[in-house]
Simulated assay, not measured.
Amino acid sequence: MSDLRDTLRVSAAELGFDVCRFASASEPWSAGERLQHFVEAGRHGEMGWMETTLERRAHPTAMWDGARTAVVLGMNYGPASDPLPEMADRSAGYISVYARGDDYHEVIKGRLKTLAGQLASRLDAEVKVFVDTAPLMEKPLAQRAGLGWQGKHTNLLSRDQGNWLFLGVILTAAEIEPDPAETEHCGSCTACLDACPTNAFPAPFQLDARRCLSYLTIEHAGPWPVEFRALTGSRIYGCDDCLAVCPWNKFAQASRETRLAARDISVGPRLADLAALDDPTFRILFSKSPIKRIGRDRFVRNVLYAIGNSGDPRLVASAERLLDDASPLVRGAAVWALSRLMGAEAFAGLRDAKLAAETDEGVQSEWALLPLREKVAERSEVG
């Protein structure tokens, strides 16, 4: 079996993977119990699929009772430099590092299938391939295989790759000798917890997704709770703060995978340009990108929240034009953005002109309730 493992590691490296390790897929673990507590507390937010697939997610054998070994692979997507200083330009949007190139699902899945085929032919055993699209808890498997550990921010953290590692898993019915598991090496460090803009970590190693900017920008379908809008800054897709500040990144290397390289549109895109996107242009611009998945309306909603945080009066025209958008979600976000950029008198005049013609109750609420919400927020900040 050691010969097989070495052969698979060589093949994995040739396919572009940076690490390939093995773990038992059948031994008991506590990850399922932790996931159950997460869902029972409602911390999964609108991600209803986590609740409906909870039993199948509890353990690899709950999804496939024939699973005996997990081949866990990692592909480095590390940036060439710290991405966080990019947020200093408030008239540009910030896109998470993981989403700047091609969709990693598409980059990894075909290569996983190639490797799985080699494994199946060598062992004459059934195999199944997973890239973050099935009810399989990949991060606990990765820790069990020794790729890294789940840090206090709940993401996988590697001593060799830092925080920047995509995961793929091959489950097989064959018994293969496992690699040693990794232990936790966070120590007393709380850099990731301290960096979170929205205090999304109720405790170390725990996440409340409802407060996470990655969840809000990507998974949340409707208008955001007002309390989080100003906190997003210029982040329009995902958030890297807890990842980027980790001291273990000093050992990370820039990704060597060309398909994961950042596109020009994904680094410092101008908010005015993004606010002007219609649906066909959005689809073309973000073809083969994970950003395409959330759709134009949700993306422009995020852009408008960033416009509201920009402090740039030149963006008033971009937001005002979207008050007549076909999407109520976009119109409501435009209202909030303008309330932040315009003077009180000018905004009140605009409200008087637009509110009478607005037919959507949600957007009406944005116009009507915004002043009260803002006053409450101001009092909280003073207090």
Rank of each mutant, 00 (worst) to 15 (best):
L141D: 09
A142W: 08
Q143D: 12
Q143V: 13
R144T: 06
A145F: 01
A145G: 06
L147G: 07
L147W: 12
G148T: 13
W149P: 01
Q150R: 15
G151T: 09
G151F: 15
N155S: 09
L156W: 06
L157D: 10
Q161K: 14
G162H: 09
G162K: 14
N163C: 14
L165T: 10
L165S: 09
G168C: 02
G168N: 05
V169L: 04
I170M: 07
L171V: 12
A174I: 05
A174F: 05
E175W: 13
E177Q: 14
E177D: 14
E177K: 10
P178Q: 02
P180I: 10
A181S: 15
E182I: 12
T183Y: 07
T183A: 15
E184I: 15
H185I: 11
H185G: 15
C186E: 11
G187R: 12
S188G: 14
S188T: 12
C189S: 13
C192M: 12
L193G: 11
D194Y: 12
C196Y: 07
P197F: 12
P197K: 10
N199C: 06
F201H: 11
F205A: 07
L207S: 04
L207K: 04
C212K: 03
C212S: 05
L213P: 08
L213D: 02
S214V: 01
S214C: 08
L216K: 00
L216S: 04
H220Q: 03
H220C: 06
A221Q: 15
G222R: 08
P223K: 06
V226M: 09
V226K: 08
E227S: 10
F228V: 15
A230W: 03
T232Y: 00
T232E: 05
T232D: 05
S234T: 11
I236L: 00
I236S: 02
G238Q: 00
C239Q: 06
D240Y: 00
D240M: 04
D241R: 06
L243Q: 13
V245A: 09
C246D: 07
P247D: 14
W248E: 03
W248V: 10
N249S: 08
K250F: 03
K250D: 10
A252V: 07
A252G: 08
A252C: 06
S255I: 01
S255C: 02
R256T: 14
E257L: 01
R259F: 03
L260Q: 00
L260A: 07
A261E: 03
A262M: 07
A262K: 02
A262R: 02
